Simulated assay, not measured.
Amino acid sequence: MTDKHTLCIFDEDLKALNNDVLDLTRRVGDALDGALDALLSGDAAKARAVIASDRQADDLQTRINAHTARTLMRQQPMANDLRAILAAARIAPHLERIGDYAKNTAKRSLRLNRAVDAEIGAQLRWMVTRIQSMLRRVGEAYAAHDAKAANVAWADDAELDAVYSKLFAHLLTIMRDDRARIDDSTQLLFIAKGLERAGDHVTDIAEEVYLMVTGKPLQGPRPKVDESGVDSNAAA
């Protein structure tokens, strides 16, 4: 009876960890969407709401870490179960950082002097939409323990880097040609860079999911486009 009860508690612990990771994934995705809406609409109240919501994401990461430690101490998990527990602990910080980039986007939106123009707004919207898609697919891969689905994040991140590289060059041109837009363009550069880094963190999560499922690291160099627009792997 005791063994059955112990196993039941362990299964509940694993399910709770899984649900917390998926909840944090949804929260940071919503934060990114809210931050972009605040940026493009100039809605200061929405920006402040996104900034305030980051506390909840931080608290959820803390809960995941505490739950991971408690589960490891209470049980002696083997193989697949151990990888699942450790994956939750390693994935949570990546999600928390994505939430930080959403918060920073919201903060920087409050510092802009003028509305974001349509071309730049469209590129930022594309980046956020791509990150949302990556988060959703990686979350589904995590929930389903699907290594193949996790692998697709690499290709998605390469496209995200390419759009970031073009936006980076575009903003530099604006700063060179119109000194009155330097301050706003600097804020937008930081926002774009944060979104590019958010994509990197989703890719890191994909690698953790792949390792969790297969017990092996995802092999091969990541496709990466640098800020000059050159594919760093191709140039090597």
Results as ranks from 00 to 15, higher is better:
Met1Arg: 12
Asp3Phe: 09
His5Arg: 14
Leu7Gly: 14
Cys8Gly: 12
Ile9Met: 11
Ile9Asp: 12
Asp13Ser: 11
Leu17Gln: 07
Asn19Ser: 15
Asp20Met: 15
Asp20Ala: 15
Leu22Ser: 05
Leu22Tyr: 05
Leu22Lys: 05
Ala31Cys: 06
Leu32Gly: 10
Gly34Thr: 05
Ala35Gly: 14
Ala38His: 07
Leu39Tyr: 10
Leu40Asn: 05
Ser41Pro: 07
Gly42Trp: 02
Ala47Thr: 06
Ala52Phe: 11
Ser53Asp: 15
Arg55Leu: 12
Asp58Ala: 09
Asp59Asn: 15
Leu60Ile: 02
Thr62Ser: 13
Thr62Asn: 14
Ile64Ala: 01
Ala66Tyr: 11
Ala66Ser: 10
His67Tyr: 07
Arg70His: 14
Thr71Pro: 14
Arg74Glu: 12
Gln76Lys: 08
Gln76Ile: 13
Pro77Ile: 01
Asn80Val: 14
Leu82Phe: 00
Leu82Ala: 02
Arg83Val: 02
Ile85Ser: 08
Ile85Met: 02
Ala89Gly: 14
Arg90Ile: 11
Ala92Phe: 04
Pro93Cys: 02
Leu95Pro: 00
Tyr101Asn: 13
Tyr101Arg: 08
Ala102Gln: 05
Ala102Asn: 02
Lys103Phe: 04
Thr105Leu: 06
Ala106Phe: 09
Leu110Tyr: 08
Asn113His: 06
Arg114Ile: 00
Ala115Gln: 13
Val116Cys: 02
Ala118Tyr: 03
Glu119Val: 15
Gly121Arg: 02
Gly121Tyr: 01
Gln123Lys: 15
Gln123Ser: 14
Leu124Gln: 01
Trp126Gln: 13
Val128Asp: 05
Arg137His: 12
Tyr142Ala: 04
Tyr142Arg: 03
Ala143Asp: 08
Ala143Trp: 03
His145Ala: 15
Ala150Pro: 02
Asn151Val: 11
Ala153Ile: 11
Glu159Asn: 12
Glu159Tyr: 06
Leu160Glu: 12
Ala162Thr: 13
Ser165Arg: 07
Lys166Gly: 15
Lys166Ile: 06
His170Glu: 10
Thr173Met: 04
Ile174Arg: 00
Ile174Asp: 00
Ile174Gly: 01
Met175Asp: 00
Arg176Gly: 03
Asp177Gln: 00
Asp177Asn: 00
Asp177Thr: 00
Asp178Tyr: 00
Arg181Thr: 02
Ser185Met: 00
Thr186Cys: 01
Leu188Pro: 11
Ile191Tyr: 07
Lys193Arg: 15
Leu195Tyr: 13
Ala198Arg: 04
Ala198Gln: 06
Asp200Ser: 11
His201Met: 03
Asp204Ala: 14
Ile205Leu: 03
Ile205Trp: 04
Ala206Gln: 07
Glu207Leu: 01
Val209Ile: 05
Val213Met: 07
Lys216Gln: 05
Lys216Ile: 03
Lys216Tyr: 08
Gln219Lys: 09
Gly220Asp: 03
Gly220Ile: 02
Asp226Trp: 07
Glu227Gln: 08
Gly229Ser: 04
Val230Ser: 11
Val230Asp: 11
Val230Pro: 10
Ser232Gln: 13
Ala234Asp: 13
Ala236Cys: 13
Ala236Ile: 12
